Computed example of a mutant assay.
Amino acid sequence: MATDDSQMTTAAHSPGGGDASRPWTELASDYEQARSREDSLDRLVEWPAQRDMLGDVTGLSLLDAGCGNGAKIAQLVQDGAVASVGVDISDNFVTEAPPGLELIQGDLSDLAAVQGLAGRSFDRILFLQSFGYANDPVHALKTARAMLKDDGFVLLTRTQPIRYAIERAEENGTTLGEEYFSTSSFSYRHRNWNEGVTLTKRPYTMSDLLNIFSAAGMWVETTVEPQMSREIGERYPHKQAVLNRYLGILMFKLRPLPVRF
């Protein structure tokens, strides 16, 4: 999964988080169409930065948790990854998966319970803009940690939390601080995906993210906040304007903390 390029349309504030994964079954095809556009921020910024952070994947096994239609994990297998798996709540997968890739319908909230993953381990585990849909993020990350091979890492990307706070402040006529530190879940629709489908998110701060990583027994080896090159920004000024206003995404390379005896 990846973040959308356009502003969200806030639908309502919701007192509970609900099952944030369920709407993706209906939304998956609309999301993939938006992501594949030539001027998608995923194509221009996110995927190149994610690919760079992964490095050479030749001979490595990968698990993409919340893989959408599986296009990204399929490309990584074509680049040399082996014995890899994509998991998504929707089963709207690419029709022709390359040899060495298995696409499984399942919930990233508990990867250990996904049929076909029991007893398996991976060199790299990816949460590409999907981590926010885990019912219990600490549990989800702990489960992923247990599935890592020696010297493996988790690549986790999330939208800059200030972006959501700015959007909600503009929508609700409130202040940045009020929305950034709000703990109320909010429901919204994406203008660029399908306005008939409502998604629910739990707001988070930077400290929330860091505390989740720590509670799951992970440490941050590298953090990246990818931006457009000047050339691409000049070619797509409307997308550069989005980044200038809403900041973009955060990317974390997470390693397991050493076990203390």
Results as ranks from 00 to 15, higher is better:
75 Q>H: 15
78 Q>V: 01
92 N>H: 13
107 D>R: 04
109 S>C: 06
71 A>Q: 12
87 V>T: 05
79 D>E: 14
98 P>D: 02
84 S>D: 06
102 E>P: 14
83 A>K: 15
88 D>Y: 07
90 S>I: 00
71 A>V: 12
97 A>C: 12
90 S>Q: 03
80 G>M: 02
77 V>S: 06
92 N>G: 04
81 A>Y: 01
106 G>I: 00
104 I>S: 13
80 G>L: 01
71 A>W: 15
104 I>P: 15
78 Q>S: 12
107 D>T: 04
83 A>H: 14
102 E>V: 13
83 A>C: 10
104 I>N: 14
77 V>T: 11
92 N>Y: 09
107 D>K: 06
87 V>M: 02
110 D>S: 12
78 Q>W: 01
89 I>T: 02
75 Q>P: 09
95 T>K: 08
89 I>D: 00
110 D>Y: 03
77 V>I: 09
95 T>R: 09
108 L>F: 01
78 Q>T: 09
93 F>H: 03
73 I>Y: 13
74 A>L: 05
77 V>E: 01
71 A>N: 10
79 D>I: 07
107 D>Y: 00
106 G>F: 02
85 V>G: 07
93 F>E: 08
92 N>W: 04
84 S>H: 11
106 G>T: 00
96 E>Q: 13
86 G>S: 13
106 G>S: 03
103 L>R: 02
98 P>G: 04
91 D>K: 11
108 L>S: 14
75 Q>C: 09
82 V>K: 10
94 V>G: 04
95 T>L: 03
110 D>M: 01
99 P>T: 07
88 D>P: 06
95 T>M: 06
88 D>M: 07
97 A>H: 11
81 A>N: 02
102 E>A: 13
84 S>G: 05
94 V>Q: 06
75 Q>E: 15
90 S>L: 05
109 S>L: 07
89 I>L: 09
88 D>I: 01
78 Q>M: 08
88 D>W: 07
88 D>H: 07
109 S>H: 00
75 Q>R: 15
84 S>F: 07
77 V>L: 08
93 F>C: 00
82 V>H: 09
95 T>E: 11
96 E>W: 05
80 G>N: 12
83 A>S: 14
89 I>Q: 02
92 N>S: 12
72 K>M: 14
78 Q>G: 14
86 G>D: 11
71 A>P: 12
91 D>T: 04
106 G>Y: 01
107 D>S: 10
76 L>G: 10
92 N>R: 13
84 S>A: 06
98 P>Q: 08
109 S>Q: 00
82 V>L: 12
72 K>Y: 15
100 G>R: 06
107 D>V: 03
72 K>N: 15
107 D>G: 06
103 L>S: 03
106 G>K: 00
88 D>N: 08
81 A>E: 02
99 P>S: 11
100 G>N: 05
105 Q>T: 13
83 A>R: 15
101 L>P: 08
90 S>A: 12
78 Q>C: 08
104 I>V: 15
86 G>I: 10
100 G>E: 02
103 L>G: 06
109 S>F: 04
107 D>P: 05
106 G>W: 01
87 V>G: 03
110 D>C: 03
103 L>P: 03
